[in-house]
Design a protein around this nucleic acid. Structure first.
Lengths: 186, 186
DNA sequence: ACGCGGCGAGAACGATCGTTCTCGCCTCCT
DNA sequence: AGGAGGCGAGAACGATCGTTCTCGCCGCGT
């Protein structure tokens, strides 16, 4: 009950800090201050910073994919249109002021070479996204290769939007996706 | 003379460490040990770690683009083929054991929010790459939008290859690029 | 020959980090 | 009522980091 609430509060604070400033740049003390919890309780819920990072990535992966699927499902029933709606959702995401690229790519670049759990979380996130696109492509009648191509476009749009600091890569990627889908006959 | 040699040696060591393990994970002492130079000399050449990081990114940007242009220029004289040759060069890069994604994306994710120089270096690197592709596309008769689409494919391939740990994204991206170029009439 | 300026090697310093411990207080059970 | 155990607040600890300082030594100019 209250247990889950404080756990959620800790993860909320950790996510905002880790995603916004990088993982190594954020100390456990900053997480404690932002979450309003005491340091002892923080270590009761997450026995080490590595555990907190892992929980942060796991929760963000699930929520990210849930929100994407919800948006795409609500946008249209047309399978081809759903594949394009993915890029509309990306555009909305990129426009958020706190957007700073893919949390998993950032974490992978920072810790992937030394923290196997971080590398595995990033791999899992990307695999799940690719599988989601492959499912949409399958019901739309597009070949699996096209799904992989769309995944690369989305991936590229995410990092391009982060580095350039604007949301136009989403519309560029959507235009490219339209060409690829048309060429695939859907 | 010897001045440039030790500077190059320092940057060689710093690049291998920073790129392979992340910037924050590498201390100045590790750079000193790897370069064989004394700590005092290290700080004579680069007055702070920030300066060393900046020099590392600057040199890597120039060398990366030079090697890409050299490979593409030597591959074929056909403008459309040169655009595709970009992805062959990416495949070679991905296959290197030390490959760990784009150094600028990694540095941006780690320090971009707090170090403006790092963010600017990443932006400059991506802008220069996009401009290079735009030049190739122009002489190939492809519209600028297609060049932007190919840039997104390349960007996505780089991070996908890093996270997944294999080089196949390069051939996927090349296949997608072929479709886009054909649709653009080149 | 002799002093002096620069160098290598590494100790030292202050800050910060992840993690644990102390201490005083509050609450709850019998 | 009284003691025992858990909690909040923050000090403390050991490690590490970026950066600077010390010290002994070598070479070079006069």
């Amino acid at each position: 009950m209250d247990h889950d609430a404080t756990r959620t509060g800790i993860l909320d604070a950790a996510e905002e800090l880790f995603y916004g400033q990088g993982i190594q740049a954020v100390g456990m003390d900053a997480v404690r201050t932002a979450s309003g919890v005491t340091l002892r309780r923080l270590y009761q819920y997450f026995p080490s910073k590595g555990d907190l990072v892992e929980a942060y990535l796991l929760r963000r992966d699930e929520r990210w994919r849930d929100e994407l699927a919800a948006h795409v499902g609500a946008a249209t029933a047309d399978p081809g249109g759903q594949l394009l709606a993915v890029f509309d959702w990306l555009a909305d995401w990129f426009a958020q002021p706190a957007f700073r690229g893919c949390a998993f790519v950032n974490a992978f670049g920072e810790l992937g070479s030394t923290a196997p759990a971080v590398a595995a979380a990033a791999r899992h996130h990307k695999d799940a996204f690719a599988a989601y696109l492959a499912g949409l492509a399958d019901t739309a009648g597009a070949p699996p290769a096209t799904a992989a191509h769309l995944a690369l476009l989305a991936e590229g749009a995410i990092t391009a939007a982060a580095v350039r600091g604007d949301a136009t890569p989403a519309v560029e990627a959507k235009a490219a996706a339209r060409v690829l889908l048309r060429a695939a006959g859907v």
